[in-house]
Design a protein around this nucleic acid. Sequence first.
DNA 1: ATAAACCCGGTACCTTGGTATAGAGTCAAC
DNA 2: GTTGACTCTATACCAAGGTACCGGGTTTAT
Lengths: 139, 139
Amino acid sequence: MKNPEALTIGKLARHGGVNIMTIRYYERRGLLPAPARTASGYRLYADDAVRRLQFIRQAQLLGFSLSEIQDLLSLRMQPGTTCADIRMRAKEKIAAVEKKIEDLERIKNALTALASACRGKGPTADCPILEALETEHST
Amino acid sequence: MKNPEALTIGKLARHGGVNIMTIRYYERRGLLPAPARTASGYRLYADDAVRRLQFIRQAQLLGFSLSEIQDLLSLRMQPGTTCADIRMRAKEKIAAVEKKIEDLERIKNALTALASACRGKGPTADCPILEALETEHST
DNA sequence: ATAAACCCGGTACCTTGGTATAGAGTCAAC
DNA sequence: GTTGACTCTATACCAAGGTACCGGGTTTAT
């Protein structure tokens, strides 16, 4: 290991704040390219692996699944892909997030209605929340 | 099968709009009590099984996990449990849902900012979305 | 020169909420 | 009296995103 910029898997992991196994997992999934190896088989990563890992982590934080990230990464590689293609993925994700928020709002409203119907006194036999759960009711 | 209110598993499944396997799965998980059996081993459900299945389905729609539903069901059984105990579960769930909504709002805002920074023109090399993903950035 | 720390591949395991398959037995109808 | 629909148990499999273990080899530091 004479190359000063080469990282072993452990260093890359610490750098990126992830587990070593996660890195190997990403490689198996095709999210990280297979790196160079030493004569004894140790993985050696160049600096761009750090950026790549960063990319994956950030995209995950923004709600992209690993498959979607794979898609973004391969889009980026393909010549002919434009900024508009990427932006479309972002817009789709925004729409999906908005839908999820709406679903959760509906759930929250239903739960709030139930909780406020319950005086919080008495035995469970009289609990309006439990009663409501036993009967069909469009959320 | 002489009991007019006894349901085979298939009928219960159709009644509740779930798969037969799902019912057996719920039984294994302890969400549905083990029903009576015919001499040949067929499950025979009474009417309350329909209500129980309903309960599970409704609670799921409100965002409760199967474990939480199990908790609700056993609470209901335990003498001494009050309406307030149930209401507390509902309030906790409301808080969890609110937190999830906040997380998603933050994600949505970050994505929206990225998408609006992207003019949607040019090659991916200049895409501000991809650039942003490669650099640390608190969402 | 030897112990500690690191890395290898392969496989199995975890969570959540189910679904599928196989091989066998049972029930109802014609 | 047999065909077809139904049910049984047990086991395996799915997505998603990892995590853990095992038995071994390697590198580094003292």
